[in-house]
Nucleic acid binder design. Structure first.
Lengths: 193, 193
DNA sequence: CTTCTAATTAGATACAAATTGAAATAGAAG
DNA sequence: CTTCTATTTCAATTTGTATCTAATTAGAAG
């Protein structure tokens, strides 16, 4: 389900999210009504009813049968049923929002805490610290072993407190240490908890 | 389905008839999100997201799982499914509007053309004339035979043109005539066409 | 206890939609 | 052709809702 269908679905909900229109759908499910009759039943003026009917008509929810001056409207059950199926197949709901960028939040955290290559401060909350550390560890190359002095130097390019950040990287197992040598771990090995 | 359920249904449509909320439902169908994350993903401020979530929450469309300061929300598929069933069973839709008075239009026609017991004018359109004649024939008693002079007299209480009205009553077979005597027909015998 | 973080609530503003009276249109009737 | 009726279109008003900033609450961490 793509963005087009999302907009269609949205228009459908907007159409039925109105007391007068929802009542009209209920009435028209029973039998045909003219604009005049609907206006009387719903206590509205004809122009108002006509406006609502045009909205339902655009979505093919109602059908029009002209007879002289009178326009008879009735519900198109088939159209209603089609929308039903496409809406409430819960498997598809998740696909509605393909256009929402999945990592927007992480990019926002980065842009909040970074000033160019410089880390303005270390986030206090674990969730955000995680995002920053992911970025920080990407400054190291995979498959390369670094002596501690080298690690500190790289971190200091971005923030003065290299001790804390190094400890955090180890804690989340983004960086691994053995015999005073450090190397970057693949993402699968990181531990959030 | 009574008026309460109608209002619930209406609130449901209103809840989903909003681009931000519909996207949220789509996202939350996939996994849990915090308010902060949703705000970033949808490019909204946290208070706005909070407001939308409260609307979805009132309808039990989403569930809240607090964890420290973070509030994790996710979709309640069950609730969504329940609404689905109650909505699109088209047999029930007609019942939604029990509260709409079925004869509101006819009563309006009567009040437009009557001034007390007096008929202000004879409606030109067939639909409305039918309503007026139904009322007029109710002035006669069932099972009683009236001579023409008597019929005219009764009609003249409401409108001077008793000839036209008498002819119309006969035409629609609301009144029956034989050998100069008239009597009222039961409603089943009337002919609209 | 104080500080910080995430979420909610309150108040204000701006945008979108519902409703209506008046005017225009299309068809029926005289 | 003119008149009348039902509907629709148009313009203007009102109502309602989404969104924001600022202030408040509840929980965590120092």
């Amino acid at each position: 389900m793509g963005p087009d269908e999302f907009q269609t679905l949205l228009r459908f909900f907007k159409a039925l999210a109105n007391e007068s229109r929802l009542k009209m759908v209920g009435l028209l499910a029973g039998r045909e009504y003219s604009v005049e009759e609907l206006a009387a039943l719903l206590q509205l003026k004809e122009p108002t009813v006509s406006h609502h009917l045009s909205i339902l008509k655009e979505l093919n929810l109602v059908q029009l049968r002209p007879e002289g001056n009178t326009h008879w409207y009735q519900l198109d059950r088939e159209a209603l049923h089609n929308v039903n199926r496409s809406v409430f197949d819960t498997e598809q709901i998740a696909g509605l929002v393909k256009d929402v960028e999945a990592d927007a939040w992480e990019r926002q955290v980065l842009s909040n805490f970074l000033s160019g290559e410089r880390l303005k401060e270390i986030p206090a909350s674990r969730k955000k610290r995680w995002v920053i550390l992911k970025w920080l560890v990407s400054q190291f190359d995979l498959g390369v072993t670094y002596p501690e002095a080298n690690v500190n130097e790289i971190i200091k390019r971005h923030h003065p407190d290299c001790a804390t950040l190094r400890r955090e990287l180890i804690g989340y197992q983004m960086l691994q240490r053995e015999h005073g040598l450090y190397w970057r771990q693949p993402e699968a090995e990181w531990k959030f908890a």
